[in-house]
Design a protein around this nucleic acid. Structure first.
Lengths: 302, 302
DNA sequence: GTTCGGGCATAAGGCCTCCTTATGGGCCGT
DNA sequence: ACGGCCCATAAGGAGGCCTTATGCCCGAAC
């Protein structure tokens, strides 16, 4: 790759004039070039004159009815054309090529339980768009990380970003049917007390217990470790290791095929939700629109 | 060579912003890049923001103490560097490369009788400068022909050009010593009437005859053809075919070595002269200065 | 922990570039 | 000879772009 140094850069020609020169050299006409560039013939004449003064030599010979390149102009024109083709290509690539890869920052559970199952239809709809998932529970800063769009959970109030609610982050206990059967079925909330509670320190449990009219003191005494993500706890629940409290919407498949059951209709809700977020300034970037439109339709369509 | 079409050109990025981007990508610092470009950090920030909006994607990630290129930026940067290197090279070549060839439009006689004998010392002094002679008696129009500098004869009043007088276009008869001897020597002007006059229609003859007190009627009756250039007529004179009327300064060598003799001190002068001319606007172009300085010194040095 | 410094972002304001309109000259074709 | 095409030039104006000034953030150092 060619190396540039400060001296070379500082000696770059006036770029606006070079752009005009390229067009004039291609058309061999000031008037036509000006037309192409959307300016007047006088402006083109001005820029060429400027450039000729900088170069120190005429670039065109003004013949009646037609202009021709001087020797100096002939030297300059091909390189300028090539340089502009390069620029044009790279610029186009950066513009739409940014379309090439969509970087989605997503919460672990949302990725494994929702995106993993639906992303296929997005790929089908946008075959030229590769999706890179960046899974973490941090709240990403779009100005510091190379992320296009993110799934977050929370109150939905973040500055500088566009937000769309996907679904409420409600929560309700789930467990495997085998585990429920082991105590003769789970008929009322209190039955849960006879089973292991997965991550009993999760505030959701406390909220739900209160809503269900159960005592919370006992919860606090239970030993327990948080696995840090609903997906892990749900897997433990499926394996029959205990009762997990999760967001229904993320486990519709497990609930539908019976790997998990929801013993009670009671659903807690702390006002949080899952949100789609992206920088306001980029709301019209094609790939971001595409993903937004797709995910909202996908959520609504169920 | 890459082809450009109007659509591509119209989609070129803002070039000023691209120039800033190139510098920032090289330094990975807004402040340093701005310094290199001789502008403030705020200006660089402004341009990058502008470009990012046009591209539709961030080009840099703002990390504390340092910025890094985003994926889009990484795609753009190498091509931009390459394009600028191309431009820079071509521009430099057009600037100094214009130094490479000096196109001199010259009168035929001046070329063969003066330049041909002196040009060697110019080549020695400027070995990197190739001289292309364009010989014709037209008055070249610098805006229509690819000419850097010209030798003209005339009154010295042309608009838009810088002029330097080389020497007066004086005129006096010359002939070969053998021809003079054939009539027993040429002692007084009237002796010329006994010899063939080369190009008797030339106004110079009329002027000189009048100055010498000879009758001009006889001149007009003589048959004669103009050869169109002093050099041709001088050659005819050297061959003994007649008497030519020429500018002394252009035939100093022939007069010195005796191939031609100047029988009379009487020299005509119609106020014309030989001039060095070039466009005023280009008076500081190195190769033009070089040629001007050389030829004036060479003329003065004799 | 607090302060200092480096680096980028942003706002307001002004200059100067660059474009437009208008006009003229040169040359060609009818 | 005259109208049309094309480029050059002058005058005038708008807006892009740069500057100054200020704020914020973060990390380093004491």
């Amino acid at each position: 790759m060619p190396e540039l140094n400060a001296r070379q850069i500082s000696q770059l020609p006036p770029l606006a004039a070079i752009r005009v020169f390229e067009a004039v050299a291609r058309h061999l006409s000031f008037t036509k070039a000006a037309g192409e560039l959307g300016m007047t013939q006088a402006a083109a004449s001005y820029q060429i004159k400027l450039l000729e003064e900088r170069v120190g030599a005429p670039l065109f010979l003004r013949r009646p009815k037609q202009i021709v390149l001087t020797e100096a102009g002939q030297r300059l024109a091909p390189a300028v054309s090539e340089a502009f083709a390069l620029l044009s290509g790279a610029y186009a690539a950066a513009r739409s090529g940014a379309d090439g890869v969509l970087c989605v920052s997503t919460l672990l559970t949302f990725a494994s339980n929702w995106l993993a199952r639906h992303l296929g239809s997005f790929q089908v709809a946008h075959p030229s768009l590769a999706v890179r998932l960046d899974t973490s529970n941090r709240v990403v800063d779009f100005t510091r990380e190379d992320i296009d769009i993110a799934i977050r959970s929370g109150g939905g109030t973040w500055p500088g970003v566009e937000v769309h609610k996907l679904f409420n982050a409600d929560f309700t206990p789930v467990l495997s049917p085998q585990l429920a059967a082991s105590i003769g079925g789970v008929k009322e909330p209190a039955d849960l007390l006879r089973l292991p509670i997965l991550d009993p320190g999760d505030p959701w449990w406390r909220d739900w217990f209160i809503a269900a009219g159960l005592p919370v003191e006992e919860l606090a005494r239970r030993p327990g470790s948080s696995m840090g993500a609903q997906a892990y706890e749900a897997n433990a629940a499926i394996a029959g290791q205990g009762v997990a409290i999760v967001t229904k919407a993320l486990f519709s498949a497990e609930l539908a095929d019976g790997r998990l059951i929801q013993p009670f209709d009671l659903v807690g809700d702390d006002g949080h939700a899952y949100w789609l977020v992206y920088p306001q300034a980029r709301r019209n970037v094609p790939k971001i629109r595409a993903f937004r439109d797709w995910i909202l339709a996908e959520i609504a369509g169920r």
